[in-house]
Nucleic acid binder design. Structure first.
Lengths: 196, 196
DNA sequence: GCCGAATGTGAACGATGTCAACATAGGACT
DNA sequence: AGTCCTATGTTGACATCGTTCACATTCGGC
C-alpha cells in the first residue's frame, strides 16, 4: 500500500522511512532491503531520502536507534514487573533482552552484527549506552557494589555477552542442529551465570 | 598483483578465490567486497567464478568454512598445550576461541552474523558442527557427565554464548565506551561462568 | 504578497551480481 | 595421432543498486 499522498510534501518523511524500512526488513531480511524500495513504499522518490539521511547506512542507523529505544522500554517494563530481589531482577532483564532479540530478529541484527555502530547517529549512541547502564545497575545491585567497580563492569560485560551470544547463536540458526527439545532456553542459560 | 597467468586454465581457481577473498576482506571488510574485485585480483573474469560457486554467497560460505577449519585447528592446538585439569582445558578453549575471533575479525563475522548459515556448503556445516563438539566434550569433562546429557548441552550452549557474545561485542566496538583499562579480557569473563 | 530555505522530482552515472552465447583446453577413446 | 565431450574460461549484456545533480514545489517569516 504505497498510499499516494495528496500533498507535494510528505509531512513526516523521516519517521515514515524508518517505519517502512522496519516493515520491509521484517518481510525480506536486511540484505534484501534497498533504499529505492523503501522510498517507493513510502510513496516518495529515491532521492528524497537524502534530504533526511546522509546515506543508506544512516537510515539503517535510525532503525537501529529505534530498536534500542524499544529495548530500553522493554527493560523498564520488565523491571517494573519484577520482584525486589536483585538476582531475580537481573534474570528478568536477561529474559526481556532475549525476548526482544528473538521477537525482532532482523532489527536486532541491525542493532548489532553489521560492523561497528554508526557513530554519526547520536540517538543510536545514547540509547545503546542506556541499555548497558540498565545492565550495569542490575549487576551492581546483585553484587552489592558501586556501579563503576571493575568487578561490576566485568559482571555486566559477562552478562551482556552471555545473553547477546545466546541470541545471536539462535538467530543464526546455529543451535538448530540440537534436538529441538534440547535447545536450552534463556533462563536455563542464565542460571549458569547467576548461580555457580 | 593480479599475477597474469600463462595458461588459459587457472589450475586451482576455487582455492585461489577463497584466498583472494580472504585477503580483500582483511583489507576492506565484508561489506566492501565485490565478486568482480575478487575475480580480477585472482586474474580471472567475473563469470569464471560461477563455474565453481553458485553465487557470491556460496563463495563467502567457502571462506567461512575455511575459518571454521582454522578455528578447529586452533582448538586442537590449545588442547594439546593445556594441562590435564578439565576446568583449565575448558578455559583454554575459550581463550583460543576469543583469540581467533579478535585476530580474524572479518572472517569471524563471516562465520557468524550474516544471517543463517549457507546450508548448501557441506564443509561449512561439518566444520561448524565439529567446533561445537569440541566445546561439548570439554564441558562434559568439566561436569563429569556424558556429552548428551541436557545439563552438558546447556553448559556448552552457555559457554559458547558467553564467548561468542564477548567476541561480537568487542568486534562491533560495543565495549569501546568503557574506560580502556576497564575492558575485561576474556579470562576475566570466563571466570564468571566457570567458577561460581 | 515576496523570497529564501526546506523538501521533493527525474534523469543520469558508475558499480554490482548474474546470465547467456561463445571460445579454448585437456583427457578419453578409438 | 585424431576426434569429441566436458570442464573451464571469456565477452557482452541486463536489471538493480546507491548516489548525485539540476530543477520544481511548498512553507514560513518578512
Amino acid at each position: 500500500m504505497p498510499a499516494p499522498r495528496a500533498n507535494y510534501h510528505h509531512g513526516d518523511l523521516p519517521n515514515a522511512l524508518v517505519r517502512t524500512a522496519l516493515r520491509l526488513i521484517g518481510r525480506g531480511g536486511i540484505a534484501a532491503l534497498s533504499l529505492r524500495e523503501v522510498a517507493k513504499r513510502a510513496g516518495v522518490s529515491a532521492s528524497a531520502v537524502y534530504r533526511h539521511y546522509a546515506d543508506k547506512e544512516a537510515l539503517l542507523a535510525a532503525v537501529a536507534a529505534e530498536g534500542f529505544g524499544r529495548l530500553n522500554a522493554a527493560f523498564v517494563a520488565a523491571l517494573a514487573a519484577a520482584p525486589r530481589q536483585p538476582r531475580a531482577r537481573l534474570v528478568a532483564l536477561g529474559q526481556a533482552y532475549a525476548a526482544f532479540a528473538l521477537g525482532h530478529p532482523e532489527q536486532y541484527r541491525l542493532m548489532f552484527g553489521n560492523g561497528r555502530t554508526d557513530s554519526r547517529d547520536e540517538r543510536l549512541v545514547a540509547e545503546a549506552r542506556q541499555s548497558f547502564r540498565h545492565l550495569e545497575e542490575a549487576v551492581a545491585a546483585t553484587l552489592g557494589r558501586a556501579a563503576d567497580e571493575p568487578a561490576v563492569i566485568a559482571g555486566a560485560v559477562a552478562a551482556w555477552s552471555l545473553v547477546h551470544g545466546y541470541a545471536m547463536l539462535r538467530l543464526d540458526g546455529r543451535l538448530d542442529d540440537l534436538p529441538p527439545d534440547r535447545v536450552p532456553d534463556i533462563s536455563r542459560v542464565l542460571d549458569r551465570l547467576v548461580t555457580g
